[in-house]
């Protein structure tokens, strides 16, 4: 605010300290830079096909953790869901059926990420749909932020090379839709 006060003192007005001016510019530029970064992130929108999938750690309801790095070489299906989300229920059975098909092969991993949910109700939900693939809470909403999800349900299929192969916004409607998407990722 230094420059702004000075008009009242003509002589003093000339003596704006260079440090102060530089500092003021630094603050303004800093603000703009931060907004620019954020703007870039906003403009990115969701994840795109072919982008490298973000690294994450999922701590499971049944104890233990899964590191995304340990899954390299496998096809990973990441499903975001919540117990309060009605559309999620539409695809829950199909996802479990798909898992039962791929589980013996060992080439595909299904992960359920429970977004902004309460543990009791989440466990009840898993129980109700008899879901057996690994599930865990999205602690600190870190995973959903890394995947830049817009809502639940959303499903991301990551290829063996760690690149994003398939993105589904909203629920899957049929089992064959899931199978087709996973098979395409496996075939690559």
């Amino acid at each position: 605010m230094s420059e702004q006060l000075e008009p009242t003192k003509d002589k003093a007005a000339r003596k704006a300290s260079p440090v102060g001016v530089a500092l003021a510019w630094l603050v303004v530029l800093g603000l703009l830079a931060v907004v620019a970064i954020q703007l870039r992130a906003t403009m990115q929108g969701g994840m795109g096909i072919g982008q490298p999938a973000p690294a994450f750690t999922l701590s499971l309801f049944d104890g233990g953790e899964i590191q995304s790095a340990d899954l390299a070489g496998k096809v990973v299906v990441v499903n975001f869901w919540a117990s309060w989300c009605a559309p999620c229920e539409e695809e829950a059975e199909e996802l479990q059926m798909a898992w039962e098909i791929y589980e013996p092969g060992g080439e595909v991993v299904f992960l359920g990420v429970d977004y902004a949910d309460t543990e009791t109700l989440a466990r009840a939900y898993l129980e109700r749909f008899q879901i057996t693939y690994p599930n865990g809470p999205d602690l600190g909403t870190r995973i959903s932020q890394a995947f830049r999800i817009r809502g639940v349900p959303e499903t991301y299929i990551i290829g063996r090379d760690g690149l994003m192969k398939y993105i589904k916004i909203g629920p899957f409607t049929t089992l064959s839709e899931i199978l087709a998407a996973v098979d395409r990722a496996l075939a690559e």
Binding site: L32, T42, G45
Partner: peptide
Amino acid sequence: RSGVLSSVHAFAQSAIGPLFF
């Protein structure tokens, strides 16, 4: 209008942010 803020009032994310900037 740029989607930089998400809030009940804010219009959804849009391409006009960089131009405003």
